[in-house]
Amino acid sequence: MSTTTGTRVRTQTSFSLWANRHRKWVLAAPAMVFVALLIAFPLGWTLYLSLTDASGSIRAPHDFIGLENYFDVLSDTDRFWPAVGRTAFFTVGAMVVEMILGMLIALLLWRPFRGQGLVRIIILLPLVATPVAVGMMWRLIFEPTIGFANQFLSWFGIPAQPWLAGEATALPTLMFVDIWQWTPMVVLILLAGLTSLSDEPDEAARVDGANAWQRFWHVTFPLVMPTFITAVLLRGIDALKTFDILYATKGKGGGSFHEVETLNVYAYGLSFDYQKYGESSTVLVIFFLMIIGCIWLLTIRRKKSSL
């Protein structure tokens, strides 16, 4: 009797000792397991589907076909590679303009001035709008026959433009919408970086006779570089994933000529329109690897710049 009690006490003691020693893991474990499942399961399932010929219904029997989907997708010059090109063009184009504009606006807002609060609120307004609502709004504005954009141009005698309706103009128009909406976020991040900077290096450069450009290029910009890279990383990943405004303005397939079909829109169409789940998963896996590659490159760059 006393032996059993003694064993139980010993077991309890050893368990409580173990739990106490690892309490940060014990407390965090449920959330970590949940997050791991949330990421690992869809990823694993997508990877599995990409190796099958699943189509029609996901519940229908399907065969394991190895890397056939990967060969098919990577040799598809009709839809896949143009979609990769558009994704890269949209991401890089929008991001570069957003970073330059964002830096300019952040520099303007950096030093205190009258009405600063109001200007900041106005600049941040596009950021709080829902992307789908933004897409619908710009779609109406850019309607070639009855939209406001062409009406506006006509006041200055400029001929009407096709905007979203044109095969060549649709993607640049959508990049403009993306820039309109997301530059404020870049401003916000860079402004946080700028306000945390000490005034001393700038003042020292001023005393040494450096002009405004020299002070920005040789002093401020290198100092704010870690924040800048963070903004590039965040905005780049976001732009890469853009789906809502493309879908809201051009619908499935990214327009009649697939003129705004990025990898996201293509994968969505394969899955929801064509019910080709195997092929769609393959596109997503390749896209995922591309994103990982981009993040890896940017992280290396950030580490180098912070050294």
């Binding site: 309607e143 070639p144 026959t145 009855i146 062409n150 009407a160 433009q161 096709p162 979203l164 309706a165 044109g166 095969e167 051009k250 619908g251 327009g255 009649s256 000529f257």
Partner: peptide, 21 residues
């Protein structure tokens, strides 16, 4: 219509007629 969009479904096309275009 000039500069006609190549993305029109019925709501867009019907709107052009309904607006007297």
């Amino acid at each position: 219509p000039a500069n006609v969009s190549t993305d029109m479904s019925w709501p867009d096309a019907a709107a052009l007629f309904a607006q007297g275009q």
